[in-house]
């Protein structure tokens, strides 16, 4: 059987915007989470992997939420849009190698401002051998 697993699904309720994200491993879940997050912000198809950025997340709370918020911080301070991500998780820390480019109004359309990734309704569950996370963002 060959099929490509859906990477994420956008949640769009009256009060909540966010996504459900899927992955075979925790690393894949984090990678797909970054794609889902930036699909809310811009058209990620138009982003080329021209530059590299490294980030490291840890701290209190949930590593996945912290990781996504740290990438959001990178976007807000440097206007870097990731296109592909590889993630390594070691205990309470996650390292990400991001490839992408800096925002260029001539090339990239902005969809919306994401203020923060929240803990509201946040959970990671295992379903049919794969991981599924629910993320609600503050827009």
């Amino acid at each position: 059987m060959s099929y490509i697993m859906e990477r994420y699904r956008i949640i769009d309720h009256e009060a909540d915007t966010g996504f459900e994200v899927y992955g075979g491993t925790m690393e894949e879940l984090f990678q797909n989470g970054v794609c889902a997050l930036f699909s809310l912000i811009t058209d990620t198809e138009a982003v080329r992997p021209l530059e590299e950025k490294r980030i490291e997340a840890g701290g209190n709370g949930e590593l996945f939420v912290n990781f996504l918020n740290d990438i959001l911080y990178l976007w807000d301070t440097t206007q870097f849009i990731p296109n592909t991500v590889s993630v390594r998780i070691k205990g309470q820390n996650a390292e990400g190698l991001l490839k992408g480019e800096f925002f260029d109004p001539a090339r990239h359309a902005i969809r919306q401002e994401v203020k923060a990734v929240t803990y509201h309704k946040f959970r990671i569950v295992e379903e049919q051998g794969a991981l599924k996370a629910t993320i609600i963002v503050d827009v």
């Binding site: 701290g59 209190n60 709370g61 949930e62 912290n66 929240t118 803990y119 509201h120 309704k121 946040f122």
Partner: peptide, 21 residues
Amino acid sequence: IRQMIKASEKYGIVLADRQLC
């Protein structure tokens, strides 16, 4: 929020949703 999640544990506050830390 990152600090308050830890603080909620410290003060024994049971959270219905972590955003309400």
